[in-house]
Amino acid sequence: MTPQRSFSISRHLNKLRWLSLSLVFAMLIALPCLHVYQTYVAAHAYDLIAPSEKQFYDVMEALTSPLTNDPATDLDAVKGNTWSGNFWGLKLSDPLAAVGQAAAGMTLYWPFLLTALIPIVVTAFFGRIFCGWICPANFLYELNSNLAAWLQLIGLKTGMRRFDRRIKYVVLAVGLGLSILSGSIMVAAIYPPAIIGRELYYAIAQGGFGVGMVFFAATLLFDFFVSRRGFCRYLCPGGALYSLLGRYRLVRIQRQVQTCNDCQKCNAVCEFELDPWHDGFGQECTNCAACIAICPTDALTFNLRLVDLAPQGPGHLGRQYRREHEHLDRDVDEAAA
């Protein structure tokens, strides 16, 4: 037992990640609310709206008045969602939107494709960081899988079926093929973060959810009853694209075999059912840092490397390694004696 572990930021990255996920989700709820408030302001409608809308107006006014002079224009600074957004003039889009649009129109429209450049570069360095840290659907899927885990603790059966991870690459390819054939961006219709972004907007500002929410609810049920985190692991076309872009990511989690004690908690906690214990991270890893947070001996760390380490064998603090190297211990003891 180590007496007192020194503070390391990487052990707390998982909390930071939950903070990031919650902030993105809160933003997707706040932006449509601000938009509705803006439309009231633009129409000078305070005296015409219903009492409940007046309450909403007052709350929004109280929240925004310290930050803005003219809500009708100042609040335009941040608009949109994770599918495509506008942050103080910086336009950012999901790489899947760029690829899907290029496929649907069979044209390359550079002003739009360039908006996906920053996400692509970030993915090339950090891997599927969008999936783990930003994706608003991942926020709900992860809560859903936590709920399933809790219910399993009290004895209910939830789906744990496994499929082939490569299916999602086929889903991506088929989606792009269908986009070319149909001339409409098919991948956008089944991509959960895009669905969540726009459906929250529809629900708040357009008077109700659309059918995308039905699809999303179906994927939640699929995750719950058939395969835990099944959509992200096996079906998501965006996850497939991010995996491919992040295949040779520079920042990746690595196991330090010297401090690993083979407890396998990392394998148990991994949302994507990867194999950190055998150094198997691969292109699917979202750098979510859940395994780092749970590791009791701090054997998992972020490192700069283009490929994973080859399997390093059992951890040096583990039982198996010590049994195999007992004679070494004895030698050391004898040398000390």
Binding site: N81, S93, Q101, A194, A205
Partner: peptide, 11 residues
């Protein structure tokens, strides 16, 4: 085929 359905115009 050009519209990605982001909803920014509405927002």
């Amino acid at each position: 085929s050009a519209c990605i359905g982001c909803g920014l115009c509405g927002e």
